[in-house]
Amino acid sequence: MNDDTANNDSAEADVHGHVAVEVTTLDAELIEGPSVATADIAEYAVWLGDDSLVLAQQLGAWISRAPELEEDVALGNVALDLIGHARSLLHYAGTATDRSEDDLAYWRTEPDFRSLHIVEQPNGDFAHTIARQFVVSHYLFELYSRLRASADPTLAAIAAKAVKEVDYHRDHSTQWVLRLAEGTDESRRRMITAMSDLWPYVEEIFRDDPLIDRLEGIAVRPSSLRPAFDSAIAPVLAEAELDIPVGFVASGGGRTGKHSEHLAFLLAEMQVLTRAHPGASW
């Protein structure tokens, strides 16, 4: 039960309120490349950046409301990873038009956002959040795994960091899918409901918009990720004894600025303060 190493170093001085700040080497906060994004690459970076931003915004709302304190910390870590990805991607997208990550996050309106409908779906109960995490992080893992080989060095560098982080998100959501599906009758019922509520939005993820044709070798073709996605989730669903839900397929349209009804509320909340103070810095 001993931890003597930690005992006395910062306590020794006992200067009130004067906490010795450790000198640490800090990693780069944003992944930045040497290049300026072309219009098409910027558009693609906005796609991916908006997905991460919207999802991080939603997960952020869980903090202080999670089912157990340990899970507050876990969801916080996932949200922070996603915010990091969003910032790097939007920063890079902004190089095309000389805008900052915040210009893009706070000063675009709904039709200019490019997020997928699945990340816009509300948190719901913990099962809904886990179902959304399960789908999205499995997709993101396949995406970033391939994007590491992008001909665009900045995108490749962002993907190289992100893939390790979403690998953990994938594991986190998988663990919870298993526990909720195989836990109690109530948790199983909720998990099944959440999966069927979410599934209509899965197809949009893997749709190829025309932009993809113009970014051969740079972007990852969404449709090409579907087989890997399907085979990654299949064993988890089998172990959890969950069937792939059948039913509606939503028309989607996030990549062209047609969004779910949820996004406007999310943006209104996210942007309210910044927009009340144009030109201010924070």
């Binding site: 952020g60 903090i63 303060l273 910044t274």
Partner: peptide, 22 residues
Amino acid sequence: ITRAPSLKRKAILMAKVQDEAG
């Protein structure tokens, strides 16, 4: 957290509130 005025501030605040849980 959901209304932080910049993405950097959002990340910082999230990390701070998370620290408090810790």
